[in-house]
Design a protein around this nucleic acid. Structure first.
Lengths: 337, 337
DNA sequence: GAGCGCTCTTACAACGTTGTAAATTCGAAG
DNA sequence: CTTCGAATTTACAACGTTGTAAGAGCGCTC
C-alpha cells in the first residue's frame, strides 16, 4: 500500500491512457470507447483510486456540501434537545442523501458564530445554506444574501427579503385547534403561546384568537411560553390560578402542552374530562404524553426536505427568483381533547 | 461587486506585494514587517478577500471538517427522534466549535450508505470520522481503519480493533440501579433490557444481575426491549402479566422507563409506591415523565466531546496509539424510585 | 486516392493556495 | 568601502482535478 492516495495520474499510467480519459470515465462523460472504459475501470479498481474532493472542488466550484445552520435565538447547543431539530435533520438528510450532498451542522447562536457561518460559506466550504431561524430579527439571512450565498429559510423572514423559504400556515393551525375545542363543547378556553417575537407564535395565536372570536368567544386569556416544557408548565400554573374554571387549553407546541397536562393533573383535574388540551407539532412528546395529545401536525420532515429541494434546484440553475412553499397543518385527534 | 470572489492575487496587487506575503499575513506566520502587515490587512479589507477553502485543502491536505457518522442498525433517519443523538450532536458541536472544525452529518444505515461514508472520507472530504455505532457487528470501523481514516468510536468496538473510543462503564451503571432498588426495599425486581446484540445493553444487564445476585437475588426476570418507548411498553406489559407481584423495574433507557411507568399506571399501580422504576441515560424523557425518573446518568455530551477531542489530537499528531476514555455513571435520584 | 467529417484521445492551461528555495534589502562589522 | 549575515520578500513549483483546444485515427464520399 503506497503512502499517499493514488491520483488520476497513477490510474492513467496503469491503464496506459491520459489523465483526461480517466477523468471522463470517472465522471461518466460520453465519448469513451467501451473497451477502453473497461481497461480504465479495472485500473481504477487495481489502484484503489478515489478522486480527491478538494482538487475537484477547486475547479468545479462545487463541494457537494450544504450548511445546515441552526440560528437559535441564543439558546446555545442545547437546542438539540428540542425534538424539532432532530426532525429537521432527519428531513434534510433524507432528501439530500440520494443526491450525494451532505449537510454540515452549524450553530449560529452568537455574533462570532454568525460571522463564522458567513465566512465558512464565503470560502466556498459549502455550496449553500439551509437556515433554520426562529427569530425574525436574525441578521443572518440578509448577510448571507449580501454575500451571494444561495440560501433557503425555514420560516419566512422577518423583513421582506428576496430569499426562498419554506413555511406552514400557522394561522390555519391555530384555527384548527380552536375549531376542535369549540366543537367538543369547551367554553372557557385559554392558550399558552410561544415566544411572541417569533412569527410562528404570533400566527398560531392570531389564528387561534380569530377562530375563537368567530365562534363567539372574543376574549381568550393567554400566557406566553418559550417553547420549553418548563415555560409551558409555568404558564399553565399562571393560567390556572387566574382562571380556575378553564376547560380547554391550546399550547403552541407539544412540549408545553405536555407540561400543561402534568400541571393540570397535579391540580387534581382530569384530561380531557375536566380540561381538554391541544398541542402543536405532533412530535414525540405528543405520543409520550398520557393521555396522548391531540395536536396540530406540522410536517417538519417534509418541510425540511422541501427546503433542501429548493436549495438544490437553486444550485442547479442559479439566479432563479425566490420561491416559497407553504404547508398546510392537519389536526391529529388523540385522547387529550 | 465583482463577479467572482477576490483571490490572493487580487489582494497582492492592491497591496503591492506578492501572493506569498499575503498568504503569510493571512495565516499569521511570522516574519512579516508590521507595517507591511498593516498594508496587506487593509488590502484584504478593501477587496473583501476570503481564502478559498478548496485550494487551501488541496495543498494542506486538511479540510477543517470531520464526519459525524450515525451508524444505526438500520433504523433509517428516524434515529434523530431519539434524544440520544441530539445530545451527541450537542457535545460534538460544542467541542469542535472553538477549533473551527465542523461536523458533516452522515447516516450509515445500509450497505450503500456505508460505502458512501467510506468513499467520502477516502476522498478527503473530511479529515476524520466520529462514529456513533451501536451495533457491535458494524463493519464500518474496520473498513475505515483499513482505508486509513482517522476515526474514533462512541462505544467500544465489537471485535478487538486498534481504534480509539469513548465509552462508559455500563456494568457499573447497572449496579447503581440494582443497589438503589434493593436499598429502597424492593424484593421483586425485574428489568427491561436494551437490544441484546448491543454491548451496552449486555453490560447494563450483566451489571444489574451481578449486583442483584450479590444482594441475594440470584434470579431477575427480564424482557428485551429495543430502546424505544413502544418496545418498552410492550416489555413492561409482558413482565406485569408474568410477574404481577413485581415491585421494582430497571429499564435500560429512559424512553423505555417512561413507557413502563405509563403501563404500570394503567394497571392501576402507583409509581413509586407500588412499583419503583429506574431508568438509564438521564435524558429529557426522564424529566418529562411523571413522576420524574430516578435514572442512571450517562454523560453523553461530555462523552461526545471527549470523542471529538480524541479525534482532534489524533489529527494533530497522526500515528498515535489508540486510546480510550471511559466515563463513570452516576445515579440521579428523583421521584420514581 | 485525396479530402472531409466523424469519434475518440491527448496535451496543456487553469483553479487558488502553500511551502521552499532563491533573491533582495539593509545594517553592521571588518 | 566592502563584505557578511540576518531579516524579509519574491518567484516558482507543487497539489489533483476539469475543460478546452488541438491532434489522431478512420471510414466515407466524390
Amino acid at each position: 500500500m503506497s503512502k499517499s492516495a493514488p491520483t488520476l495520474e497513477d490510474v492513467a499510467r496503469v491503464a496506459g491512457v491520459s489523465r483526461a480519459t480517466v477523468s471522463r470515465v470517472v465522471n461518466g462523460t460520453r465519448n469513451v470507447d467501451p473497451q477502453l472504459q473497461e481497461t480504465v475501470r479495472s485500473a481504477i479498481e487495481q489502484t484503489g483510486y478515489s478522486p480527491n474532493r478538494a482538487a475537484r472542488s477547486l475547479v468545479t466550484r462545487r463541494t457537494g456540501t450544504v450548511a445546515l445552520v441552526i440560528s437559535g435565538a441564543g439558546g446555545g447547543s442545547d437546542v438539540f434537545t428540542d425534538p424539532f431539530f432532530g426532525r429537521v435533520a432527519a428531513g434534510v438528510v433524507d432528501f439530500l442523501r440520494p443526491h450525494s450532498v451532505h449537510p454540515v451542522l452549524m450553530l449560529a447562536d452568537s455574533e462570532p458564530a454568525r460571522t463564522e457561518v458567513v465566512e465558512f460559506l464565503r470560502q466556498g466550504s459549502a455550496d449553500g445554506a439551509l437556515l433554520v431561524t426562529t427569530h425574525p430579527a436574525d441578521p443572518l439571512p440578509a448577510r448571507l444574501l449580501a454575500a451571494g450565498v444561495p440560501s433557503v429559510l425555514y420560516a419566512r423572514p422577518g423583513a421582506p427579503t428576496p430569499v426562498s423559504y419554506v413555511d406552514m400556515d400557522h394561522r390555519a393551525g391555530g384555527r384548527l385547534a380552536a375549531d376542535h375545542l369549540v366543537a367538543s363543547g369547551r367554553t372557557d378556553v385559554v392558550t399558552i403561546s410561544g415566544p411572541l417575537d417569533v412569527l410562528a407564535s404570533q400566527d398560531r395565536l392570531a389564528g387561534f384568537r380569530d377562530a375563537m372570536a368567530r365562534h363567539g368567544f372574543p376574549y381568550v386569556p393567554s400566557a406566553e411560553g418559550g417553547f420549553t416544557a418548563e415555560s409551558g408548565g409555568a404558564a399553565m400554573t399562571r393560567l390556572l390560578t387566574e382562571h380556575p374554571d378553564l376547560d380547554g387549553v391550546f399550547a403552541a407546541n407539544d412540549l408545553m402542552a405536555q407540561a400543561a397536562v402534568f400541571v393540570i393533573q397535579e391540580h387534581g383535574l382530569r384530561v380531557p374530562d375536566d380540561v381538554a388540551v391541544v398541542g402543536f407539532d405532533d412530535s414525540t412528546p405528543a405520543l409520550a404524553c398520557r393521555p396522548q395529545l391531540t395536536t396540530v401536525r406540522q410536517p417538519v420532515e417534509q418541510m425540511a426536505a422541501a427546503m433542501a429541494e429548493l436549495l438544490l434546484t437553486d444550485l442547479e440553475k442559479p439566479g432563479q427568483r425566490p420561491r416559497s412553499v407553504i404547508f398546510e397543518p392537519e389536526l391529529v385527534v388523540r385522547a387529550s381533547a
